[in-house]
């Protein structure tokens, strides 16, 4: 890893391979470190991204440089999980928004998911429905 970090006095140049870390991940990590350090982005987003960091007063540049790579891994994992759960999160939100207006529910996939969530299956029929006892007396 040391070959990816070059430190001189209170400055560091981090060399990041964009094939390993998504550009959005690098942006997120960069944003996080703006309050601890001064940062300039340079390089080629397709070949090698250079993150030039200067530590703010009282901050350790070596620690910042290593932490930056940790955050790249952290955000990469977050992005991967966010991508893999995007569909279900969208459906949950869609359901939450449609709860008060059933007329909005049109999507077949949403209907299927609703049935799954309610524990219903395609075979269930009206006979399975629970009828309130008051109705029997009428």
């Amino acid at each position: 890893m040391e070959k990816n970090i070059k430190i001189e006095n209170d400055k560091a140049v981090l060399s990041i391979n964009p094939k390993m870390y998504d550009l959005e991940v690098i942006y997120s990590a960069t944003y996080l470190f703006l309050d601890k350090s001064y940062i300039i982005l340079d390089g080629d987003p397709k070949k090698e991204i250079l993150v030039k960091i200067k530590a703010k007063k009282g901050k350790d540049i070596e620690e910042i440089a290593h932490d930056f790579f940790n955050e790249l891994i952290n955000y990469s994992d977050y992005k991967k999980r966010a991508d893999s759960t995007r569909k279900i999160r969208e459906l949950i939100l869609q359901r939450a928004l449609a709860t008060n207006d059933p007329n909005l529910v049109e999507d077949d996939e949403f209907d299927r998911l609703l049935k799954e969530l309610d524990g219903e299956s395609e075979e269930s029929d009206e006979n399975d429905m629970i009828v309130p006892w008051e109705d029997d007396e009428n």
């Binding site: 942006y27 944003y31 001064y38 300039i40 982005l41």
Partner: peptide, 16 residues
């Protein structure tokens, strides 16, 4: 100067 560069970077990231 350093604060200026950070500010430009922050704005650029926000624009994305």
């Amino acid at each position: 100067f350093d604060e200026f560069c950070n500010y430009v970077l922050g704005l650029s990231l926000n624009d994305r």
